[in-house]
Design a protein around this nucleic acid. Structure first.
Lengths: 162, 162
DNA sequence: TGGAGGATGTAGCCAAGGCTACATTTGAGA
DNA sequence: TCTCAAATGTAGCCTTGGCTACATCCTCCA
């Protein structure tokens, strides 16, 4: 029935959906992003804890995330295995260069997503909540579009006095 | 003119982060959303397959998602257990009323997210890809904001004689 | 200085969502 | 009708990310 060639005979585009081949790629891409969400949340949080309190301890991470400390310790072990974090038994958790790079990028992206949602009129509470999930799936191109929109809205706001 | 929120100076605690208690809630909320992403993807896809081809078969779902058929069959079993689909051995997969409800809602949300990304200038390829991940984390309030923005931009475009 | 209590680590459980390999069923065409 | 390829199902493995329960370590202060 379906040949590899796919020359013509465009199969039903169904309300603007991407072609099947492209859709597979999109799903794959999203699954990949889902696997890195947790890591991004952790390094971002660890960076915040270090910046504000000087060090990141497992118990603080657990409290901020709302999970058990055992979960945190196991996850931190995986992050260390993956080279994002360094820690020694009974000691605080530190970021590697790679981990810090990801943390900085994640934080910038996170803050821009929040700023964007606020700019288009989303309430503060919902903006924070939605950004937590959305941020991990925003590509550089979309992020740039967000930034443009924020600039436009702020520009128009200051132009109208106030 | 695009609606704007946040005219006043916000309390800038630690780079605009929410209070710890609220942050815990946001993380919890996001984890909850992550658990339903797969189910939403499946029912949305099953609805598309039924609408376009008359029935949804496991092999088609597997091809569209880019996963093995064994994974699909196991997941469909979970969806049936959870009351979203109905199927019998060696037969096609159908949606329950609940499943159809979720599928319709997911599709509308998905399409609006795509339309929104296109409206703010994201390329078609990236819009499709990012929407696949973003859609599951967009609350009703944010979705409403997206809709407003789409209306604004399209209104401005047609007003300027295009 | 010696506990006590908090922080950390370990063990073991669970479900989800992937996979491969193999078994069974279906159904279309010769 | 009968066969065989494709579809479906089953078994068993893996990793992740949750949890509880219990063990060990550290540190501060009485």
């Amino acid at each position: 029935m379906i040949e590899m060639g796919e020359t013509e005979a465009e199969p039903h585009q169904l309300g603007g959906m991407p072609a099947p081949d492209q859709q597979v790629e999109n799903f794959r891409h999203t699954r990949r992003a889902r696997r890195t969400e947790i890591a991004e949340d952790y390094v971002e949080l660890i960076a915040d804890l270090i910046d504000s309190g000087g060090e990141a301890r497992a118990v603080d991470i657990a409290r901020r995330l709302g999970v058990s400390h055992a979960t945190v310790i196991k996850t931190v072990g995986r992050l260390q295995r993956d080279g994002l974090v360094v820690t020694k038994p009974y000691r605080a958790i530190f970021l590697t260069d790679e981990g810090r790079r990801i943390a900085i990028w994640s934080r910038q992206r996170h803050e821009l997503v929040v700023k964007f949602l606020l700019a288009i009129g989303v309430s503060k509470e919902v903006a924070y909540a939605d950004a937590e999930g959305i941020e991990h799936h925003v590509s550089a191109e979309t992020l740039a579009a967000f930034e443009r929109v924020v600039g436009e809205i702020n520009g128009r706001r200051s132009a109208s006095g106030h």
